[in-house]
Design a protein around this nucleic acid. Structure first.
Lengths: 146, 146
DNA sequence: AATAGTAATGCAATTGTGTTGCATTAGAAT
DNA sequence: ATTCTAATGCAACACAATTGCATTACTATT
């Protein structure tokens, strides 16, 4: 997905060791143009690296805490992970296909929220705004049609 | 919360039997001014009714399918349930306190999305747009302050 | 009222995702 | 080499939610 991102550098800049496991987890997510579940990531990484399931979860937690990754919630019980917004990646809403479970990135202009405006109407402290569009993706629409 | 809602009527209109369990589950949610988890609901209902945990889950599934209730996702693994948008209840975003897990309803004007506009930019079929504002609620801010 | 058929519910077991505790290994610093 | 810390593995656990199957409640028909 992103030729501007050097994953090892990203990790080091965040102050964490760039271990093979971490680079591979981050690469898997960064090279994919839609968010993945922990299990998706695990299956991709273990093809080359002999990594433990738990390690994947721990790496994901770490990278979310370091604000390198973003944890997205589907309608269901599984979290999806994508690159966190940064200079190269603007914050954007996501599309979740309720039929096949695939999560997609939508383009940033399609929805616009004025956080400062919202903050004025609300006394709590706003940290993040998650926008998820649910529906049926084109693939699933096709399959239903036949 | 809502004096305009007769829960028995709502159920019958949707074409499902208005059993004591279903009325009680729906009442519990409708009388509350913020969304609740399945377990919250279970604990309220069982105080008067001797109901099984599984029955609560099944009733919730049914009422979501009938579009009477809305399933909301927090950042975490637990779903929250509130009244689905209808004539009396406009669609609105929610605030989720990442510190205490409490979910709140925000007022509809605070965020505005043009669904038709969005649909034009996107080939899939849009069924719902979920907006969740994450942050720290006033209660938790106070507690942290002392 | 008895019977049969269907819908709703209960209970036990299971699933899926994620977490914790503790042992082991790898890597860095001395 | 030795020591220290960080990263990882493995097994067990936690929790929300679901499934399969038995039981009960309800409705319609005779």
């Amino acid at each position: 997905m992103c030729e501007n991102c050097n994953y090892t550098t990203i990790l080091k800049t965040a102050g964490v060791d760039a271990t093979a496991n971490r680079v591979s987890v981050l690469e898997t997510i960064g090279n994919n143009n839609y968010p993945l579940t922990a299990m998706d990531i695990y299956h991709v990484v273990e093809r080359t690296l002999s990594i433990n399931r738990v390690t994947v979860y721990r790496i994901l937690d770490l990278l979310v805490a370091k604000n390198i990754l973003e944890r997205l919630s589907s309608g269901g019980r599984t979290a999806y992970f994508g690159m966190a917004p940064n200079e190269n990646h603007l914050p954007h809403p996501h599309f979740y296909c309720t039929s096949c479970g695939r999560m997609d990135c939508l383009n940033s202009e399609s929805v616009r929220i004025n956080t400062e405006q919202l903050q004025k109407t609300f006394p709590g402290k706003i940290e993040n705004i998650a926008i998820r569009v649910d529906g049926i993706c084109t693939n699933c629409l096709k399959e239903k049609a036949h």
